[in-house]
Design a protein around this nucleic acid. Structure first.
Lengths: 346, 346
DNA sequence: CCCAAAAATGAAAACGTTTGCATTTTTATT
DNA sequence: AATAAAAATGCAAACGTTTTCATTTTTGGG
């Protein structure tokens, strides 16, 4: 039985490279970390030797001293959902630009699972971590704090967050789309949002939506507030329910995925969007612009957030942790497309 | 200026834990790696000490001896696309089950970029890597071979692949959907596929589709073969083009994303699916089942592939590399939904 | 109870780098 | 050309574990 073959056969180390280049290992190390400090001819010899041998650095060994591993963590509720994949891609490729790599994991909206994931990432010595939202388990936060790891919260902007954050104003987003519907004359409006426990993004959006009703002295009846998971099929099913029972003239969806389901629900029932029902979403995911009708929604710059978060985390590494917790708000754009129209007075 | 603060303040190591538990560091190490070898009372003391101190293992330091880092790489063409996010999620969570973590990166269908990514992952000492498809740069493959890293190719099944693979028979998939359309009486069929260079999945699917035409002694005119990126918007645009110029009665899309675009194109043009145009896809992504009409497609079990790949890679680690290259085919299911119908004889 | 065998633990040498300090080489100044 | 200062390089001690080998403790059979 080939017990954990220790082979590591053809892998040359810094020492082999040094020997071949006729320098000391220290110099080879410097060549890779601070090239400007080694003389040009030496540099050339090392470069040659390394390439001859097919040398590949062992960042892990290096990290023993450094205390920097060059990997940064990202924990999202779920990967398998248009909501976050854009973010992930942007975060990852921006890290690559900084010569870092991404360790990613999903907790499936289960904050308890997040704790285990944080631990697992910490065991791998991440240099920093980005978390979605501001709702997290204390245990996880303590582990991070004790180790003094840069943490930032992304996706939701919260002026008073105890963590640095980069995100959008979800409250405002909820307001904007709801107001748009009211401005169009709709009054019988259904609200379909994701479960808000442990999900500050959804919570804020819903708060925003409700605040508009309040301002207008309108009360959405309990009957008009619905909870729905981030799933097109579920949303469609629920949509059909709502459209046949409550018969709203418009639906505010907490998220584009839900909107997609709602639009399909209308189509399945033979109702026209926006003539019979107006629908708005939040997010502006891939595809939302191109479906028929195009979805009226709010563009949440996922790419921008991912990219900024990567930059920020790297910066926190390189310049030591800033004492000040910064909050960065990214802009959102209202995309007025074809899924909403003024209420047809019958 | 806080130059790369070396702090690592509150982080206790194995030594602190050992001291507190009144044992040697060696025993603490054993406690974590082979618990059964340490006596129960000792185990308890160590456990207590570790939890008191908030100790978190440093797997990196451990990996110096082990030659196993506990991280496994996954390189995909893109994360930000329904195509792969399901795979990624499954792969990642199955790794978590095996107490491994995932390092992931996307090359954007650029095989040259893949080389750099492979190097970067190798520098982080991955224990194995999963690559999508069988088309890869030789340099990358050599780096992996030299280091003797377990590699598997996923997504496409190829009996003769030089790499172990886990995937679906894309050739058969192409055949099935195409045959379905021909069986329904369609003859004026447009083929819309992704660029096949460096993309064996698309290539196989297209080959499969064309093989059916050949068998039936039919020739798809050059006019009927189109290339399209994996993007709903682009697909929709191209779809509108095709539907207004070539006026096919059916479209075979190389992938569900393209199908979505094609369906929206029909809707934008006021054509009914499937009455006026039949459309088939390949993949069965999230949402395909629920759109209106439901997309007729082939279910590619991305979750299953991801999960199997994770298992396989871990197994290759634990039992030493098997000398035999294995090829595993995962089943696909044809999903006959609402987007196809028999040709209306005019 | 005794002793051999087995089980549990400890001591110390790795693992492949980085880095502070010492040494050598180069450069600049006079 | 001599020398001081600066730049380049080398030496060896880390980094935080795991693991081999040696030692101690426990177990079980007579």
């Amino acid at each position: 039985m080939a017990k954990r073959s220790r082979s590591r056969k053809g892998a040359p180390g810094i020492i082999e490279v040094a020997a071949r280049a006729g320098v000391s290992p220290a110099t080879v190390s410097r060549f890779f970390n601070t090239p400007d400090v080694v003389k040009s001819p030496t540099r050339k010899r090392i470069e040659q030797a390394a390439s001859d041998l097919g040398y590949i650095r062992d960042r892990m060994a290096g990290s023993m001293h450094n205390r920097f591993s060059g990997t940064i963590g990202l924990i999202v509720p779920t990967i398998d959902n248009a909501i976050f994949s854009e973010l992930i891609e942007a975060f990852s490729s921006q890290l690559l630009v900084h010569d870092r790599t991404m360790l990613i994991a999903a907790h499936g909206y289960d904050l308890k699972r997040e704790v285990g994931i944080v631990r697992s990432l910490l065991e791998r010595r991440i240099d920093g971590i980005a978390l979605v939202g501001q709702d997290h388990d204390t245990i996880a936060m303590n582990m991070l704090a004790q180790r003094n790891i840069p943490v930032i919260s992304i996706w939701n902007y919260d002026q008073d967050s105890y963590l640095p954050c980069i995100g959008a104003d979800n409250f405002a987003a909820g307001r904007t789309v709801t107001k748009h519907l009211l401005d169009l004359g709709h009054r019988n409006i259904s609200l379909v949002f994701a479960d808000t426990v442990g999900n500050d993004r959804a919570r804020e959006r819903l708060r925003g939506a409700l605040s508009v009703f309040e301002e207008m002295q309108l009360q959405p009846s309990g009957q008009n507030l619905h909870t729905c998971p981030y799933d097109v099929g579920e949303a469609k099913k629920l949509g059909i329910d709502i459209l046949t029972s409550v018969k709203p003239s418009a639906i505010v969806c907490g998220n584009d995925i839900i909107s997609h389901g709602a639009i399909y629900a209308c189509q399945a029932l033979g109702m026209r969007v926006p003539e019979d029902v107006s629908i708005v979403g939040i997010g502006d995911f891939r595809g939302s612009a191109h479906m028929e009708p195009g979805l009226t929604t709010i563009r949440l710059p996922a790419k921008r957030i991912g990219s900024l978060a990567a930059d920020k985390l790297v910066a926190m590494n390189e310049s030591g942790m800033p004492s000040k917790v910064t909050h960065q708000k990214v802009e959102m754009n209202f995309m007025d497309r074809g899924s909403t129209a003024a209420l047809q007075t019958p």
